[in-house]
Amino acid sequence: MKAPDLAPIEEQLFTLSMASIRQFSDEHPDESFYGFGIDCMADSGIFLLCFNSEAAFAETAKEYIERFQYSAADLAALKTNFGDWKYQDFNQDQPHWEAGWGAYRDAIEAYSFADETEIEEANAYVEQLMRCACRVLVRLERSGIFERTKMDPGFTTAVMDHDEDLQEATLRLNSVRAEFND
């Protein structure tokens, strides 16, 4: 089985992300955000767009301290854990997303989990997809789309695959950013 071509995947992910962020910012004109992320399950072709605010983080932190006795170190990790962000996967609720992404998601997942796809090939492809998602993020940053939202000082962005830590993800994103600056 042939791996799905990354060029149209990247272009569609960028186009749909622009539309999703535009819609999200129109729906949240008064809220200010400290971060944006692309939460990936790349092997399944799933790319979840996420925003979080300091107010939402404070609510989550309070709950986690009470329920799970979170420490300061736990809270620091929580701040960048997309799965705990208030607006994790907001793009999934937008009708244009499924209509525009479903076929790509299905093709990626079919390739990644096909019996004839070797584990090494699938892993290499997933890494290429993650670099693709990083290129999309850099293109989003350069497009000015984030200026449509209120951004806190120090606003950050990231792209992370499931089961990946922020340090690993940051190294990849910085590598992709360097390619844009060459």
Rank of each mutant, 00 (worst) to 15 (best):
residue 116 E to R: 14
residue 4 P to E: 00
residue 39 D to W: 15
residue 157 T to R: 11
residue 162 H to K: 14
residue 11 E to V: 07
residue 143 S to K: 06
residue 9 I to L: 06
residue 74 D to M: 15
residue 1 M to L: 09
residue 145 I to E: 03
residue 177 R to G: 10
residue 66 E to L: 14
residue 106 D to K: 03
residue 126 V to S: 05
residue 2 K to N: 09
residue 84 D to T: 12
residue 141 E to A: 01
residue 88 Q to K: 09
residue 177 R to I: 11
residue 62 K to V: 05
residue 79 K to A: 11
residue 56 A to Q: 10
residue 154 G to T: 01
residue 115 D to H: 13
residue 160 M to D: 01
residue 19 A to R: 01
residue 121 E to C: 05
residue 91 N to T: 05
residue 38 I to V: 15
residue 67 R to D: 11
residue 26 D to W: 09
residue 77 A to K: 13
residue 163 D to P: 08
residue 4 P to D: 00
residue 89 D to M: 13
residue 83 G to M: 08
residue 27 E to P: 03
residue 144 G to E: 03
residue 78 L to K: 10
residue 155 F to H: 04
residue 176 V to G: 10
residue 164 E to V: 10
residue 158 A to H: 13
residue 40 C to F: 09
residue 148 R to W: 11
residue 157 T to P: 12
residue 27 E to V: 13
residue 117 T to L: 08
residue 8 P to F: 13
residue 145 I to N: 03
residue 108 I to W: 00
residue 171 L to M: 15
residue 98 E to S: 00
residue 122 A to I: 05
residue 165 D to G: 07
residue 167 Q to E: 08
residue 49 L to Q: 01
residue 86 K to C: 10
residue 50 C to Q: 06
residue 172 R to Q: 14
residue 19 A to Q: 07
residue 6 L to A: 08
residue 66 E to H: 07
residue 131 R to H: 11
residue 59 E to C: 07
residue 90 F to W: 00
residue 156 T to A: 03
residue 176 V to F: 09
residue 158 A to M: 12
residue 42 A to G: 06
residue 73 A to R: 07
residue 127 E to A: 11
residue 29 P to I: 11
residue 46 I to Q: 01
residue 36 F to C: 01
residue 5 D to N: 13
residue 29 P to Y: 06
residue 88 Q to I: 06
residue 167 Q to Y: 10
residue 145 I to D: 03
residue 2 K to F: 08
residue 55 A to N: 12
residue 43 D to C: 05
residue 47 F to G: 05
residue 78 L to I: 05
residue 78 L to E: 04
residue 129 L to T: 07
residue 82 F to W: 10
residue 143 S to V: 12
residue 22 R to F: 10
residue 149 T to S: 08
residue 123 N to D: 07
residue 33 F to M: 02
residue 99 A to C: 03
residue 161 D to T: 07
residue 180 F to V: 13
residue 92 Q to C: 14
residue 30 D to T: 13
residue 48 L to S: 04
residue 179 E to A: 02
residue 56 A to N: 14
residue 14 F to C: 12
residue 87 Y to I: 01
residue 67 R to N: 10
residue 94 Q to I: 06
residue 166 L to P: 09
residue 95 P to F: 09
residue 98 E to R: 04
residue 31 E to M: 05
residue 90 F to D: 00
residue 97 W to P: 13
residue 33 F to Y: 02
residue 133 A to I: 12
residue 50 C to P: 14
residue 64 Y to K: 10
residue 175 S to Q: 14
residue 129 L to Y: 00
residue 107 A to W: 00
residue 125 Y to L: 07
residue 58 A to W: 05
residue 14 F to N: 13
residue 141 E to V: 06
residue 83 G to S: 08
residue 82 F to T: 01
residue 126 V to L: 04
residue 141 E to H: 00
residue 59 E to Y: 02
residue 87 Y to R: 02
residue 34 Y to Q: 04
residue 104 Y to W: 03
residue 165 D to W: 15
residue 125 Y to F: 13
residue 5 D to A: 15
residue 13 L to Q: 02
residue 46 I to L: 08
residue 85 W to P: 00
residue 174 N to L: 15
residue 66 E to I: 12
residue 97 W to H: 02
residue 168 E to Y: 11
residue 32 S to I: 15
residue 152 D to H: 02
